[in-house]
Design a protein around this nucleic acid. Sequence first.
DNA 1: AATCATATTGCAACCGGTTGCAAAAAAAGC
DNA 2: GCTTTTTTTGCAACCGGTTGCAATATGATT
Lengths: 340, 340
Amino acid sequence: MVATLKDVAKKAGVSRSAVSRTFTPGASVSDKTRKLVEKAATELGYRPNILARGLSTRSTKLVGLISNNFHNPIFLEVFDRFTQGLQERGLRPLLVNLTDEVDPRNSVQMLRQYSVDGVIVASSTLPPEFAVAFRDAGIPVVNSFGRYSTEPKVHVVGIDNVACGRMAADTLAVRGYKRVGFVGGPRDATSTQDRFHGFMEQMEKHRGIDVQFSFASAYSYEAGRAEMQCLLGEGPLEAYFCGDDVLSIGVMSAVRDAGLSVPDDIGILGLNDMEMAGWEIFNLTTIHQPIQQIINSSVELIVAMLEEPDRYPETRLFPCKIIERGTLRPDPAKQVPVEA
Amino acid sequence: MVATLKDVAKKAGVSRSAVSRTFTPGASVSDKTRKLVEKAATELGYRPNILARGLSTRSTKLVGLISNNFHNPIFLEVFDRFTQGLQERGLRPLLVNLTDEVDPRNSVQMLRQYSVDGVIVASSTLPPEFAVAFRDAGIPVVNSFGRYSTEPKVHVVGIDNVACGRMAADTLAVRGYKRVGFVGGPRDATSTQDRFHGFMEQMEKHRGIDVQFSFASAYSYEAGRAEMQCLLGEGPLEAYFCGDDVLSIGVMSAVRDAGLSVPDDIGILGLNDMEMAGWEIFNLTTIHQPIQQIINSSVELIVAMLEEPDRYPETRLFPCKIIERGTLRPDPAKQVPVEA
DNA sequence: AATCATATTGCAACCGGTTGCAAAAAAAGC
DNA sequence: GCTTTTTTTGCAACCGGTTGCAATATGATT
C-alpha cells in the first residue's frame, strides 16, 4: 500500500542505499541520483518510516510526556506549550496519563518498549525518585516543575518553591496582615512541602504575626473549597496563601459563599498565574510561575541530552514574581502618592 | 545496554523464535521452554521492543490524538479521558497540537511516518475534510466532536449540534424570554453553524420572540467577554445562548462588569457542562455534552477499526440534556407546586 | 514396537530502514 | 593519456523483532 525504500529504489533504478542516503542529511549522493530518487519519491508519495529508521539509528524522535495532573487547568497550558515546543524541534510527544500511579516501573518499561529518545516528567506532585527511575534505565529525563536538590540526579527545571513560600510570607507581612494561613496542596507533594517551609520560615522573621496552616487533598477547586469551609468554621484569619491558583479559587468560592468579601474581609494570594487568574471575576493576586520559560528550557535541555546523554545533571530555576490584582490589600509601599 | 531477543535466546539456550513465541499470545511453545525463556527474560529485564515488532506485525499500538483546542478548559477533560481510555486498551496516544494548522497533509504524512494504528481527530472546529484525509491515506480515523453527515465518509462521534440549538431555543422560549440572542463560537466551525441553525430554525416556531445573533472569534473567555461588551453597547437582550461554557463565562463576566445581574437582568445558557460550569461562582445553566460517553465510544470505535479497517463509517450521536443551575429563570413547568 | 497424528522447534526470510566497506566511477594531477 | 586521489555507489550485514515452513520431538494408537 504505502511506498517503501525498495519501491523507490526500483522506480529510480538505483540501490536502496542510494535512496536512504538521499533522505539522510549529509550523506554522500551525487546530484544526478538525488534528482532521480527525489522524482521517484514524490511520484510515489514516499516518506521514510521513522520507526524503522529508529531501529538502526536508535533515535525515534519520540519523547514521553508524563503527567499526573489532568484536573488543574494550568496543565492545559502546560500541554499546549510542551507539544508546541517539542513539535518545533521535530520531536513527538507520547502522552502518558499517570492518574493514581506512583510507581515509575510500569512507565519506564512501557516507554523503553517504545524506544523513546527521552522523557519529560511534568509534575510538581510526583516524588523525585520517579524521574530518577528513568535515568537509571538509561533514558534521558527532565523533571519539569520538580524539586531542586543539592546533589541532583536528574535535570530539574522549575521554580524555587521555598523562595516562593518566602515571597508569599513577605507579601502578606508587608501588607500588614497579622493573622494569616497557609493552605497547601497535597501534603506529600514536594512543591507543597517546599512552599510550606519557605512560608513558615520567613514568617518567623516577621514579629507578631499569627500563622496557621492546613493542607487540601489535591490541587483542585473542590479541595480548596472544602478545606476553606472547614477553616471558616474554626474562625477565619485575615489572609491566606494558597499553594495554587485553582485552590485559591476554591477557597475564594467558600469565602464568598459564607457572605464574606475578598479582599475586604479575607485576602487571598495564589500561585501560578494561570490564564484564569486574570479573569475579571477572580482577579486573583498571585505569584507568577514562568511556565513558558520553564517549558522552553525543559525542551532545550531534553534536546541537549539527546546529543550528550551523559550531560551533568543541571538544575534550572526561574524567578517568580508577584502579580498584583485584587485579592489582597494594596502594598502600602507601592501606593500611588496622593498629590499634595 | 538493554536486553534484546537475542540475548534472551542465548541465555535461555533456545532459538530467537522460541523467545518471540513466548511473548506472542497464542503461539506454540512448550511449557519447558516457556519457563526457560521467562526465567532468562526476567533476569535480563527483557521486554519486547514494540516498534520493532510493529515492523512485522504492522501494529504499533500508537494512536494519533489530534486537536487544535488547547485553550478551552474542557479539553483538559477530553485529554484526560482519551489518554485513560486508550491506555486501558493498551494503546498509546501520540499527541498532535494543531494550533493554527488547517491543512491535514502534514499531519497525515507525519503520522504515517510513525505508522500509527489509527487517528482520533478531537475537535469541533476543524472541517470534516480533515478527518477524511486520514481515511484517504488508509489510516483508520474517528472524528470526535465532529459534524454529522448524511453520507459519512469517516466515523463521527459526538452530539447533534442542530438538536442542541433547538433544545436551547425551546429552553429559552419556555422560560418566557421574549428577546434573545445567540452568541456563537467561530463562524467557520461546523459546531457553531449547526448550533446556530438549530437555534434559529426552532425559534421561528416560537411566536413573538425577537432573535439576534453574533459570533465570537473563538471558543474562549476573552472572545466571549469582548463580544458581549459590544452587544451590551447595542442594548442588551433578556437572555443569550452561548455556544460553549467558557464563552458563557466570558459573557457573564462582561454582564456583571456592566453592573447587571445574571439571571435577573440577563439570562445565560451555556453548552458543554464542563467541570467549571458547576463551580458555585458561575453556577451555569448549560446543555450537558456527554463527553465521557463520546470518548468511550470513540475509543471503542477506533479499536474496532483496528480489527476491521474497512468497517462501514458510522455516526454515533449522543443525547444532550439541560443542566439546571442558576443562570436562567426557572422553568415554569417544573416549579415545585406550592402547597394549597 | 511400529505407525501415525500432533506439538514444538529452529532455520531463514522478511518488516523498512541504515551504514561500513570495498569496488566503481569521476575528478585531479602530471 | 595514464596514474592518483576523491567521490559515489551497491553489497551485505545489521537494528529487534515475527512467522511460514520443514524438521524434529512428543504422545497416542494399535
